[in-house]
Design a protein around this nucleic acid. Sequence first.
RNA 1: GGGGGGUUUCCCGAGCGGUCAAAGGGGUCAGACUGUAAAUCUGAUGGCAAUGCCUUCGCAGGUUCGAAUCCUGCACCCCCCA
Length: 427
Amino acid sequence: MHDVIAELRWRGLIHQSTDDAGLPAWLVEKPRSVYAGFDPTADSLHVGHLMALMILRRFQQAGHRPIALVGGATGMIGDPSGKSEERNLLSVDQLRANVAGMEPQLRRFLNFDAGPGAAVLVNNFDWMGRFGYLEFLRDVGKHFPVNVMLAKDSVRSRLERTDAGLSYTEFSYMLLQAYDFVHLFNEYACEVQVGGSDQWGNITAGIDLARRLRGVQLYGMTCPLLTRSDGQKMGKSESGALWLDPEKTSPYQFYQYWINLDDADVATCLRFFTDLGQDTIDRVLAEHEADRGRRTAQRCLAAELTRLVHGPDGLTIAERATQIFFGAEIGELPEAQLQGIFADVPSRELPREKLQGNGLPMADALVAAGLAKSKGEARRTITHGGAYVNNRRAGELDRCLTLDDLVGESTIVLRSGKKKYGLLRFV
RNA sequence: GGGGGGUUUCCCGAGCGGUCAAAGGGGUCAGACUGUAAAUCUGAUGGCAAUGCCUUCGCAGGUUCGAAUCCUGCACCCCCCA
């Protein structure tokens, strides 16, 4: 069997493990089952989930069986780990919708069809939902010394804050996650849990519980939390999280995020998020070093990830839109080609009449296209020379869009700054 | 229970009767330089039918020609003494 730990190690994906010395050999011995949990806080996964997802994927590639757990039950409680304040509870309907949204996305990363190593998708609501309160307290709660629970980072940091409390509900969260681990051990012989470094406390809670309840030794491993060199959270764009759902974050926007990544972060991301091997990555990085202006590494990363998340078609669309916007003159594009990128670049529809007469003032157009929050902001952008119509600078405040500005049948391409595009479609 | 301090625009933080849409910093946006990078520099940064009008300084009232600034009450937070 492939040594998955060695693989994860060179990629920099190991932060802590419960048994640094023994784990590699134990994993090479025979296929094991590994699980990671995903709380359904939204109806789509986002880039923040990618780390754990890629780790499961690599375990599967190495011959192990990945188990993706969606937290239909734990999501009802809310994990205090890494959260500075108490969370609002999600409604049951919302949770159900969120779980439904995440499931097909998980399937993109893991293979659910292939024999003994086939991935498994479970929802902890299926076993937690039926658990009676008294039963749970007797069977599970009894094994948790409160002083140990209080010592966990996730709890302690919250208790130390004077401005944010910790409810009994969230305090109990770790019991649920701990029990999940034991349950998965019972049902799937799952012996390893992976997660972000903030999950350490929850993972070890599960290991302790398994020892007490079943007398078995389970394993845990965490990956580092990924932050960008400028301190921002990876995968956070100006407009919020980078979703894996193409309806929320289009393949074009997704692709653009990675294309724009700092040089300082690109090597790490290549190792974390692509399936490329060490040799290939080294070659790409060397090529990138040789001529940074070509952004070889970013292009490679963006292509690999977009293909993984949105498929070859998604990548094609993203690349084509990128070529059109950052390359050629827009003036003469055929309508058909514009249609292709419509779906992907934020666009708004407006009635065609707006272009008649004096036309549509530039500032209104920018606001309508979502490129400015207010007319004041739009005006500033224009005055500073940051507004473009069909890639041509439009610097005059009194500039109005008319029928003459249409590209193809019904489109006008607006841009604010260097790279923020918005399409207006006049129907 | 007693005493003191605080709540300002996206965030931090000045302002303490008019010249306050409110200093400064951060962030953000735009420009220059570049490589759709980083760093740096420049400008902008409540809204709008815009030489004006409207909304904003915890909430509600009051004093005043005029209040973020003064008074009263309320809410929340912090600190000190019991």
